[in-house]
Design a protein around this nucleic acid. Structure first.
Length: 446
RNA sequence: GUGGGUAUAGCUCAGUUGGUUAGAGCACCAGAUUGUGGUUCUGGGGGUCGGGGGUUCGAGUCCCCUUACCCACCCCA
């Protein structure tokens, strides 16, 4: 490049019309499913006070420590907590909205979902971007295991609706209540401390930052030590132990494939009790499609009354990649969105003197409520207009010349079948309505 | 933050042991006699070979630096 050209910032990408076929299908699947479970949409701002994330995700979490997109506030101190940060995840903002809106007092049970962009300043790689979208769900005010199961099932159904098959599985674990967790953390620290010399560099680092994550190390030499590490289950309080069993039983009763996985340790501080991921093993290394769990202390942490919560977040990009890899969803599911990329009707002017009338015809069809109506925008010749229509895959071309004007008709040419017929000018909209309705085009509108 | 890979037209790529005005396919634009597309044919626009420095009579082709992107690790959606 001779001149340095502009380019999309690292870790971002342009979602072009073609890309949006699949993405919009993901989005509408999310909306439909949420409606079916009666979760209502919420749209918090894309940025929040930095301290909100520091508080909820935990100061020592990777996200807060090195992945936040933060902008200083004008005229404020340099204190980082005073700044704004583009949301790195959805739960904190939604929980803040719950507290700020006073829902705990007036309508404590709220089932919400959101769909939109998140931002993390990290090194991009396949399926990981600095701006990415998530579909997430948060339920406040329901403490019972039944709600954990409902949320997890909803997550599962989302992937099933997209065509993922039998191999979908839920990996379930519990982090216990805060007291359980504290006891476990101490036990792990005490256990690993004398063994640190034999651990990999990453594990020594994890020991300092977050012992729990040491349990998920893949290095062979660490595996044995991990296998013998203290387990949470014996330390679990009676209540949280029973809760875990109930979630497990509840999911199994609904026919979900669930495996217990002690390696599931979420990186954010706010999780309590249930933590889970949804995996699709055929995807290999990137089989994790969704992560979530219970966060009973979060609302209180934010200054609201003690209120239980549970939710999940699904990354749309990994899902998108997985769908492409698996050649899903079924083509028929995308047909309407794909069709919408092509004009349905292309109005063609025979000569220069026919352009005004062609524009009038185009406008009439558009005003009538038909979709996908186009005409030449570049002063092309008659032949070139037809060529253009053919190239763009239009269904019908409306030909308008002196003969048609004289007889008040329009020649409608079927660009796919090849035939053509003269339709009275006055009946043209109705003529198309009959056929478009039959083809049920326009269903792709948002 | 760590490690590795790549960088030639809008896209996918050729460019021989360094040597005349850097090529192809696709895409794009315009034509092939007066009112009809998708095939075919002809012509056309478009790259100073990511950027900078060096070696050389001469570098897209060798060396160094740099930037961007990609992949993996960490972590995560």
């Amino acid at each position: 490049m001779a001149q340095k050209r502009f380019q999309a910032p690292r870790g971002t990408r342009d979602l072009l019309p073609e890309d949006l076929v699949l993405i919009r299908h993901l989005e509408r699947t999310a909306h439909r499913l949420a409606a079916s479970y009666h979760y209502l949409e919420i749209r918090p701002p894309l940025f929040e006070e930095t301290r909100l994330f520091q508080r909820s995700l935990g100061e020592s979490s990777d996200v807060v420590e090195k992945e936040m997109f933060t902008v200083p506030r004008r005229g404020r101190s340099q204190d980082p907590g005073e700044a704004f940060t583009f949301r790195p995840e959805g739960t904190a903002g939604v929980a803040r909205a719950y507290v700020e809106g006073g829902f705990a007092a007036r309508a404590p049970l709220q089932k919400w979902y959101y769909l939109g962009p998140m931002f993390r300043y990290e090194r991009p790689q396949k399926g990981r971007e600095r701006q990415f979208s998530q579909f997430g769900v948060e339920v406040f005010g329901a403490a019972g295991a039944a709600m954990d199961a409902e949320v997890i099932l909803l997550c599962l159904r989302f992937f099933q609706a997209l065509g993922f098959g039998e191999q979908l599985e839920v990996r379930l674990n519990t982090m216990g209540d805060p007291e359980d967790r504290d006891r476990w953390r101490e036990a792990l620290k005490a256990y690993f401390e004398p063994l640190l010399d034999g651990r990999c560099a990453d594990c020594r680092e994890r020991f300092q930052r977050n012992v729990f994550r040491l349990l998920d190390c893949k290095v062979a030499a660490c595996q044995e030590a991990i296998a013998a590490a203290p387990k949470l289950r014996p330390l679990l309080g009676a209540e949280s132990g029973r809760h875990f069993e109930e979630v497990l039983a509840g999911l199994q009763a609904l026919g979900a494939k669930v495996v217990e996985d002690p390696g599931i340790v979420r990186g954010l501080d706010y999780y309590t009790r249930t933590v889970f991921e949804v995996h699709y093993p055929p995807l290999g290394a990137r089989s994790a499609l969704c992560g979530g769990g219970r966060y009973d202390g979060l609302v209180a942490e934010m200054g609201g009354p003690p209120t239980p919560g549970v939710g999940f977040a699904i990354g749309l990009t990994p899902t998108e990649l997985a769908l492409k890899e698996l050649d899903l969803p079924p083509k028929a599911d995308l047909a309407d969105l794909k069709d919408a990329l092509k004009p349905q009707i292309y109005c063609v002017a025979l000569g220069e003197e026919d352009r005004a009338e062609t524009l009038a015809l185009t406008t009439e069809l558009r005003d009538a409520g038909l979709t996908g109506i186009e005409l030449d925008a570049r002063g092309k010749s008659f032949k070139a207009q037809l060529k253009e229509a053919g190239k763009r895959g239009v269904h019908w071309a409306c030909l308008l010349g002196s003969e048609e004007r004289a007889s008040s008709t329009v020649v409608v040419k079927d660009m796919q079948e090849g035939g053509q017929e003269a339709v009275p000018r006055a009946e043209i909209s109705a003529w198309f309505f009959q056929r478009q309705a039959a083809a049920s085009t326009g269903a792709a509108l948002p």
